[in-house]
Amino acid sequence: MSQLFSKKNKEALTSPIGMNNPVTVQVLGICSALAVTAKLEPAIVMGLSVTVITAFSNVIISLLRHTIPNRIRIIVQLVVVAALVTIVSEILKAYAYDVSVQLSVYVGLIITNCILMGRLEAFAMTNAPWPSFLDGIGNGLGYALILIVVGFLRELLGSGAILGHSVIPQAFYDAGYLNNGLMLMPPMALIILACIIWWQRSRHKELQDK
């Protein structure tokens, strides 16, 4: 049991949440971070789905890693991810229809998410299944964390709501407060993301480029 959570494995799980975050440090998955963060709820759903899919595709690729021909490895990875996502979405359609309706928009975004390809290529191709699984979970959670922060800020400032419930009191609007419609536009996600990266790098000197 102690081996399952050795120092190296723990690091595979925790470092992507902070110092090696897939979005802010590895700069992966930016496009979907822009697309789904106008509201908090889709950001959470997307974060969780990416976590699950990254973890399992990491395991599958890690199991296959010795057999995959080097020249077509990216295609193999893509096929594995696409097949996995399709099967999961088919199963959801049959057994959890409401969830699948919620997710339908994201299925395509999950397949093309560069975090998946990035982790498969950088980690699963050279590591055993269990560390790969942890790496997938860690990176998924790191991605989810950023999405949730950005989604929270955009929904709060853009729609004055959190998870669809209005939180800004009517008195504020009466006093002249306006929702910032710009927050709902994709460019604002980029600006918020840049602020997070700025904050993180100013606190951690080792992340700064020379």
């Binding site: 057999t67 995959i68 021909p69 020249r71 077509i72 193999v76 096929v79 097949a83 399709t86 099967i87």
Partner: peptide, 22 residues
Amino acid sequence: TNSNVYTLVYAAVMVIVVAFLL
């Protein structure tokens, strides 16, 4: 695993397996 034959066979098998699975 780098030979042409292996690569072709691998790709073919993979596609067939995935297609049947789906």
